Amino acid sequence: MNPEITPAAATPFSTPWGVFDLTRFPEDPRERLRAWDAADEYLLRHLAGEAGGADGATDLAGRRIVVLGDRWGALTTALAAHEPVQIADSHLGRRATLANLARAGATSDPARLLTTRDTPPERIDVLLVRVPKSLALLEDQLHRLAPAVHPGTVVIGTGMVTEIHTSTLQLFERILGPTRTSLAARKARLIFCTPDPALDPGPSPWPHRYALPPDVGPVSGRTVVNHAGTFCAERLDIGTRFFLGHLPTPAPGARVVDLGCGNGVVGTAAALAGPGAELVFVDESHQAVASAEETFRTNLGPDARAEFLTADALAAEVIAPGSVDLVLNNPPFHSHQATTDATAWRMFTGSRRALKPGGELWVVGNRHLGYHVKLRRLFGNCQLVAGNPKFVVLRAVKR
């Protein structure tokens, strides 16, 4: 069973700093995915000197602690008394952290919850890294944080055994310094890195740019900009490629949302096909929204107008109900290591709320996911626009 899944998602998180009721965001009482796992637990036990070995407890008093990649705020909440700085890419993770801190009775100055696009602290005494799914994001963030690390910095990474590979350790060693790993405990492992001030990792290779193929409609041959951690940052994925061949042409003045925009190639294609349209790019990843903005401006000019929003799907607080003519969506079906359709369902329900009467949601997805069933249930209609053995493009109209 996936280590993030438990029959009771609200199982208390027991740590040396207290017991916490943690939830993901948005909260759902039916949710079976936990907001913490054994990797978070193992790291905190090690810091308190309770995980065995000869290291003893780590002195955290008065030290600048940075937590990188804390998925749902488990580490930040447990260590709240030490005022850690959290650096994370996920808008949903930030919202979960704020909710979990509030539930624990802790307060958090928003300045201590940074995104992966913000300027990091100038000095880091303790760096705790929750290893992300994306090695590229880890590489980019270690490059950004390396100037703040000094020879006395305690650097500890944590992840499930399946998330830590030789390539993970090589990144730490190339950018920060030598590493060693712990024994596995409950399928989790720790990475201990000793900063080497003489190490010169060179410049970060991110963002990455590539030219699109010549047969993908209005964006054929155009340049795409990808910040680290963005979906398919090295090449155009086959689902998006199929979608680009079947996009509708926006009417002049239409308000069009590229929902889950990633690097923004779909919304950029819509803007090029319908130059009078008003584009809105939405993603829960700060890296993705930054990528979308650079892709859009690279291809339509630095003064071209569009909105770029880091948000939870099409939440009412960011997109007014009944204000959108067209939503274009390639929904993800993973949340970290877990497979789930919860994100797609939120995207579909948010789209229906945001669309004007007569507005349309166009979706591309793997054929086996059965999105047509959800769309018919929600919209009362669903049309197959195009399909191949792997993907379908679906159209639902708000009546």
Rank of each mutant, 00 (worst) to 15 (best):
H208M: 13
G350P: 04
R255I: 10
T97F: 02
L199E: 07
R112Q: 13
S323I: 04
L244F: 09
L92C: 04
P214E: 15
V282T: 03
C261R: 00
N330S: 13
E307D: 15
H372Q: 11
T268C: 11
L22T: 00
L361E: 02
F25M: 07
P12V: 12
G370W: 15
L190F: 03
W362C: 00
A78V: 12
H46S: 10
T298A: 10
E278Q: 11
G358C: 09
I164C: 05
T15M: 07
R112D: 11
G73L: 06
G262N: 05
V318F: 09
A104D: 05
A185V: 15
A271L: 03
R30A: 14
P250Q: 03
A57K: 12
V392A: 01
T223P: 03
R64G: 05
P147V: 09
W345N: 03
L33M: 13
A38R: 04
N329L: 08
H150N: 09
D28K: 11
R95I: 07
E284C: 06
L68I: 08
L171H: 04
R174G: 03
Q383C: 08
L309R: 06
E360C: 06
R346I: 08
V373S: 12
I65M: 08
R186N: 15
G264E: 02
D55H: 13
L43V: 08
L145I: 12
T58M: 14
A9S: 11
Q86L: 14
A288K: 02
S323F: 02
V225L: 04
P214W: 14
G264K: 00
F348R: 00
G276L: 13
V161F: 05
S291P: 05
W72R: 01
L326E: 01
E27K: 15
I65T: 03
T168D: 08
P205K: 10
P252C: 09
H227W: 10
N388I: 15
R32I: 12
R395W: 05
L394N: 01
A80H: 02
I124S: 00
Q383H: 13
G350N: 02
H82M: 11
L176V: 12
L43H: 00
W36A: 04
Q337F: 11
G245T: 13
P121Y: 08
G358I: 15
T310G: 02
V257A: 03
P195D: 05
A271R: 00
L135G: 09
R297F: 14
A78H: 02
P147R: 14
G62S: 08
N2G: 07
V393W: 00
P218H: 10
R235M: 11
T77C: 10
D118T: 14
D70A: 07
V219M: 05
H46F: 09
R45W: 06
T298P: 06
A88T: 13
E139F: 00
T339C: 13
G159Y: 03
V256I: 07
G253V: 15
P7N: 09
G359S: 09
T158G: 06
N366F: 15
P12N: 13
N388T: 14
V149G: 03
D341M: 10
P110H: 14
E4H: 13
D325H: 10
P205T: 10
W206F: 12
P203D: 15
D196I: 10
I164D: 01
E139T: 06
T349M: 06
G245Y: 15
P357L: 11
M160Q: 04
P3V: 06
V364M: 07
T116L: 07
D89I: 00
G239A: 14
P132W: 05
A48T: 07
R180D: 11
